[in-house]
Design a protein around this nucleic acid. Structure first.
Length: 235
DNA sequence: GCGACAG
DNA sequence: ATCTTGTCGC
């Protein structure tokens, strides 16, 4: 029998097709995917890093991924997706709201990133599957969570100088770091997402940050997504 | 029951 | 996240 010309759908397409529609289904998915998170050191020196962020307007979302060469931080491209939002925002379930748009967006990049930087948590999440871990597992790409505020965990105030940090702990475990990316500026919450270790995540976030609080790939994705929303999602 | 709560 | 004016500080 001849080999079928029909290619089986990509894993992420299959998953998008059955994307959870409610909390109950989402919890089942988290229970399954959390076991697939692997916090191992990077298997390859990062050459391409992509930041991801989304802007909302009505019931629609504009998701953007900005690709940069690393460690030079030369901007390569921005790709985006506009879709209807079907899942509400519920603390602990952010990835189910932005996930579909994020996955479609990352697949549009002309180069597969070596690391994904997210505006949200990695394993620093009540079920160990923040948005960075969730997407990292689905796409099998190393990922980092770089949130602007805390979801869970305890920590002390990190030294005010850039590069200083204190650890985020939860139930006796070290799950992330509260990292100062600029002198005297509110720190960011860094946690490994998938296929990376905390120390490497901290290092990459710092090396992607220059004169602003957020690492450049995420900062750019944030700016571009908001601009596109105001230009394309207005009428 | 009360407080906390990524984006 | 989004809605929004002025304002404090380097």
């Amino acid at each position: 029998m001849a080999m079928s010309r029909l290619k089986s759908p990509a894993k992420e397409e299959t998953l998008i097709g059955r994307w959870p529609g409610d909390i109950r289904e989402a919890m089942a998915v988290q229970e399954t995917l959390r076991k697939r998170v692997r916090l191992i050191h990077l298997q390859k020196t990062p050459e391409y890093v992509a930041g991801v962020d989304a802007a909302f307007g009505g019931d629609r979302v504009v998701c953007v991924s900005s690709l940069f060469r690393f460690p030079a931080l030369e901007h390569i491209e921005d790709v985006y997706t506009i879709t209807d939002v079907k899942f509400p925002y519920i603390p602990g379930f952010l990835s189910f709201r932005e996930g579909p748009a994020i996955i479609m967006t990352i697949r549009k990049l002309s180069i597969r990133p070596d690391v994904l930087l997210f505006d949200g948590q990695g394993i620093a999440h009540p079920y160990g599957l923040g948005i960075a871990s969730h997407i990292g597992v689905l796409l099998n790409i190393p990922s980092i969570g770089c949130a602007k505020s805390r979801l869970i965990g305890d920590h002390t105030e990190p030294d005010r100088r850039k590069g200083m940090f204190s650890y985020l702990t939860y139930r006796g475990k070290r799950i992330g770091a509260v990292l100062r990316t600029r002198d005297g500026v509110k720190p960011v919450f860094v946690s490994p997402g998938h296929l990376i270790e905390l120390e490497e995540a901290i290092d990459i976030v710092l090396r992607c940050t220059d004169r602003y609080r957020l690492p450049e790939p995420v900062r750019r994705a944030d700016i571009v997504s908001k601009r596109l929303r105001n230009e394309l999602l207005s009428s």
